[in-house]
Amino acid sequence: MADSIIEINDVSKVYDNGVVGLQNVSLNVKKGEFLVIVGLSGAGKSTLLRALNRLNEITSGEIIIDGESITKAKGKKLREIRRSVAMIFQNFNLVKRSSVRRNVLSGRVGYYDSFRSTFGMWSKADKERSAEVLRRVNLLEKYYDRADALSGGQQQRVAIARALMQEPKIMLADEPTASLDPATSQVVMDDLQILNNDGITIVANLHSEALALQYATRIIGLAEGKLIFDKPVEQVTEADFDSVYGRTPKSVDTTKTSEQPTAGKTVEQAIELATEKNDEDAEVSVL
């Protein structure tokens, strides 16, 4: 497939303690897709996502990013491939003691050598780019603030700005809204939607079925490390969600109640457990 930007060929992952993370997963992601991965906690969603930029190693199989094997890449080659694959995280992963500016510019380090980046010798173009990406997420006025002075939603948007500094072709999002309240979740997902409209391929793990159905162009379901379904969003049915969440069909109509990532999922306690982290970060940011 010529237009595939990510090719996942028969990928398996077994952790050192014997836990199976992924079992023979194969799929291709086309350029410009907004792919959402759903599944229970421990189903292998994060394992799959973190395998795509090799934050986790895989046990067997191969992953091709834009025509190049990231599985076989080493050293400089690996760093160059990673540069084109940005990522945002559930816990934002900003350096809290550093300024927003330094956090955002740190997304650009792949284009610099150790010396120039460490001593902050950024090019004029990149300084302007850092202001531009922050303006895109509506946080330009926070440029010189410390990262830990920002609310959860703002921190996630700074993380998006940092990711944009990479000028990525692909954006991975590992539970980007799990630490956020519903309103802020929408803002963050809207930001991802805009990037997707600009041509960046998005691969996101989501707990919320509602958000998945609202933003995805294609949804895949994982359970126990195996691919359960893989469909364009128009064809995804309630039965598909039931299959990955191990529910008996028609138990609860979660598409109506799961707007909030931290509430409404009374059926599956496992989901609730995984999403109730960091409630204190859940502050609505009105900007």
Binding site: N53, L55, R79, E80, I81, R82, R83, V85, A86, M87, F89, N91, F92, N93, L94, V95, K96, R97, S98, R102, S106, G107, R108, V109, G110, Y112, S114, S117, T118, A159, R162, A163, M165, Q166, L172
Partner: peptide, 28 residues
């Protein structure tokens, strides 16, 4: 916090850059 280390590696940082951007600010 290992999170910022992940974030830097994602951006294609080398070891020195991971240290100076993700570790030094946290331990200074």
């Amino acid at each position: 916090d290992p999170g910022p280390i992940d974030a830097l590696e994602t951006a294609g940082a080398n070891k020195v850059q991971v240290i100076s951007f993700a570790i030094v600010p946290q331990v200074l």
